[in-house]
């Protein structure tokens, strides 16, 4: 089924998505990869503030190429990065920030899948490497946080327009397309 979603997402919408659905997104999406996960959780541990944009966010595992300077940033290429690197940190991110959807490639661990089921979050697979097509959907940059982490690791705040196609690869019922494929692999 093809679905058009407006972000921020509410729990009910997220829970209605099923593995195999094809999704396009309109609205705010935040990038965050290794360093964002590490810093955000460390800030919580130390009682420090985190950027408000992470709350109930759609989190995109992506380290984009951006051109221009403040006020004139433009996205050049922005495909997904390998989500499995964030496996050990993602459950806490979902719990602490109420992340509703994660966009990435390659899928995440069963543990993260369990947290998604419990908290109401889905995993959306973006086509790895389709960085120019996806950059088109990311449309506009509304700001950036933590640029000191470097261009790929900062939080880029995108206003998306028909970002996709994204495939619901892990849903809130504990289904994972990756697991299904893995179980049926012919070696």
């Amino acid at each position: 089924m093809m679905v058009f979603l407006e972000t921020p997402l509410d729990e009910k919408t997220v829970r209605s998505l099923k593995v195999g659905d094809v999704v396009y997104i309109n609205g705010p999406v935040m990038t965050g990869r290794d360093e964002v996960h590490i810093r955000a959780l460390k800030n919580i541990d130390e009682g420090k503030e985190n950027p408000e944009c992470l709350r109930n966010a759609v989190l995109y595992h992506c380290g984009p190429i951006i051109s221009g300077t403040e006020g004139s940033y433009e996205v050049v290429a922005a495909g997904p990065t390998t989500s499995a690197r964030m496996n050990s940190l993602e459950s806490r991110m979902i719990e602490e920030f109420g992340i509703r959807a994660i966009i990435g490639k390659g899928g995440m661990s069963k543990d993260v899948g369990e947290t998604m089921k419990r908290c109401g979050c889905v995993y959306l697979a973006a086509t790895g490497g389709a960085a120019v097509t996806l950059a088109e959907g990311l449309a506009r940059i509304e700001g950036v946080e933590w640029l000191d982490l470097g261009m790929p690791e900062a939080i880029w705040k995108f206003r998306t327009s028909r970002l996709g196609p994204l495939i619901v690869a892990m849903d809130c019922n504990g289904n994972s397309l990756y697991e299904q494929v893995k179980e049926n692999l012919k070696r």
Partner: peptide, 16 residues
Amino acid sequence: DNVKKAEFLGRPMCQD
């Protein structure tokens, strides 16, 4: 689709 756009726009086909 991405390969075509990257070549046409002269942009890297992947951000990595």
